[in-house]
């Protein structure tokens, strides 16, 4: 207790007083922080989801193996286990003719009625072969094609490779954009706090005349920076949480095949990251705008 505690209380009061007195400036700074952190948060969410989609796509690299129509069930079973034994194959799902028909109906949806015209099931027996990476596909496909009773082994090569390229771009581009956004936010906060510092330059000058050290002068501003950053981050995290959960509800309804991340626990990380970034940017912003000012 004693002097240090007095000083801390004093700094805190000074911060509150300054933020209250420079009300318009404070609102402007917080708004800036909210907007920048919000944009940052949106990119974080896009990044997390694209990363998730990329992983999902990698996990779901699969080769579809169509069997010849005249193959018997026992022959098909043997081929199935031969495929499963190939190196690089993770899992083999059997899709018999009934299952293929079900899937087809599902895909047709409300138009499934047209299938009732068929009295025979024309769909072939097939296997969905999951492999442990996209690079494996090219070595596994010829082996499967060489097996008997196999009509064809296919792999949506172009599409998947394009997707991989796309997710790579998303990943690296995402990181770059997040860094750029962080720097942009910092820049805006530096400028906003500089206005606050400028508005109080006379006070700072007088503090220096009476022998205040730079760190004594700096503290209330640093606290102010943290306040602005963290408060802005909380508001934008709140807005993002509400926004995100309603958007993914819509995506789940309309675009069910896109694997979106659920709101929780993802949002916990977003909250932590944004508050952290907000605080850091606030402190750094104050520090930088002040150090230019304190330099004699």
């Amino acid at each position: 207790m004693g002097n240090k505690a007095d000083s801390i209380i004093y700094f805190f009061n000074e911060t509150m007083r300054s933020m209250w007195r420079n009300g318009v400036m404070t609102v402007a700074s917080v708004t800036t922080a909210v907007v920048s952190v919000l944009i940052l948060g949106i990119f974080l969410l896009l990044f997390a989801n694209s990363h998730n989609i990329a992983r999902y796509l990698e996990d779901s690299v699969q080769i579809t193996v169509y069997m010849q129509d005249d193959a018997r069930d026992d022959q098909i079973n043997i081929i199935g286990s031969e495929i499963a034994a190939l190196p690089g194959v993770v899992k083999v799902d059997t899709v018999d003719k009934e299952k293929a028909m079900e899937r087809f109906k599902e895909r047709l949806g409300s138009n499934a009625g047209i299938l009732s015209a068929l009295d025979d099931n024309p769909l072939p027996y097939s296997f969905d072969v999951h492999v442990d990476g996209p690079e494996r596909v090219t070595e596994i496909i010829p082996k499967i094609q060489g097996m008997s009773y196999v009509e064809s082994a296919r792999y949506g090569k172009d599409v998947v490779e394009k997707l991989f390229q796309f997710t790579r771009v998303l990943r690296y581009g995402g990181i770059a954009i997040i860094i750029l956004m962080g720097m942009g936010t910092l820049f805006i906060i530096i400028n906003t706090i500089r206005l606050t510092v400028y508005a109080r330059r006379r006070e700072i000058e007088i503090m220096r005349y009476v022998g205040a050290t730079d760190s004594f002068i700096r503290w209330p501003f640093l606290l102010e920076g943290i306040f602005i950053g963290v408060f802005g981050a909380v508001i934008s995290a709140l807005a993002l949480t509400i926004l995100y959960s309603s958007v993914i509800d819509k995506i789940r309804l309309a675009l069910a095949f896109i694997p979106v991340l659920p709101t929780w626990p993802l949002m916990i990380w977003i909250w932590v990251a944004l508050i952290f970034v907000g605080g850091i940017i606030g402190v750094a912003g104050s520090y930088i705008s002040l150090s230019r000012f304190l330099r004699v």
Binding site: N3, D6, S7, I206, Y209, V210, G211, F216
Partner: peptide, 24 residues
């Protein structure tokens, strides 16, 4: 004079002691 316009007389004077981190 160079006083802080938004602080009372007491605060203006106390200011010079606060920077020395003197007890309240």
């Amino acid at each position: 004079y160079r006083l802080l316009p938004d602080r009372t007389v007491f605060e203006n004077v106390a200011f010079a002691m606060r920077v020395t981190e003197a007890p309240k």
